[in-house]
Amino acid sequence: MIIVGVVLLLAGFILGFPLLVTAGIILLIIGLALMIAGRTGHAVGGRRHYY
C-alpha cells in the first residue's frame, strides 16, 4: 500500500492530477499507520504482521 501511494503521488505530480496526489497521500498515510501498528505487535486485520 505504501508503494502504491508513492506511485500515485509521483504520477499525480508528473501528470498534474491533484486527485492522484490526494489519493497517493491518503494511501501513503494509511500504509504507514498499518506498518507501525504491525511492527508494534498489534494484530492488523486479524493478522499478526502487516506486510
Rank of each mutant, 00 (worst) to 15 (best):
I14C: 07
F17P: 00
V44G: 00
L32C: 14
R39E: 14
R47F: 11
L9D: 02
L19R: 09
A11P: 01
R48P: 12
M1I: 12
L19W: 13
G46W: 09
L19E: 14
I36H: 03
L10W: 06
L8S: 01
I25H: 01
V7H: 01
L34I: 07
L8C: 05
L20P: 05
G12Q: 12
R47A: 09
V6A: 11
T40H: 03
A11G: 08
I29Q: 00
G12S: 12
V7S: 05
M35W: 07
L8N: 03
I2D: 02
L8D: 00
F17D: 14
L28F: 14
Y50V: 08
A23G: 04
I36R: 00
I26V: 15
V44R: 04
G41R: 08
G38K: 02
A33D: 07
A11Q: 07
R47P: 01
G45S: 12
F17G: 03
Y50Q: 04
M1K: 12
F17E: 14
A23Y: 09
L27F: 15
G24P: 04
H42W: 05
A33C: 10
G12H: 08
L20R: 05
L9M: 03
I36E: 06
L9P: 00
T40A: 13
A37R: 13
V6H: 00
V7Q: 00
I30H: 05
I2V: 13
G16I: 13
A43F: 07
G24H: 04
G16N: 12
G31M: 01
Y51I: 06
G16L: 14
V4E: 04
H49A: 08
G38W: 06
T22S: 15
M35S: 11
L27V: 12
L32D: 02
F17V: 11
L34T: 03
V21G: 09
L10G: 08
Y51A: 09
G45E: 03
V7T: 00
L15F: 15
L10D: 02
G31V: 06
V6L: 12
G41W: 09
I2G: 10
I29P: 00
L27G: 06
I29A: 10
G24I: 13
I29F: 07
R47D: 13
G24A: 15
G45T: 04
G46C: 02
G46S: 11
L19A: 15
M1V: 02
I14W: 11
L27I: 14
L20V: 10
I3M: 07
A33P: 00
V21D: 01
A11H: 04
Y50I: 04
L34D: 08
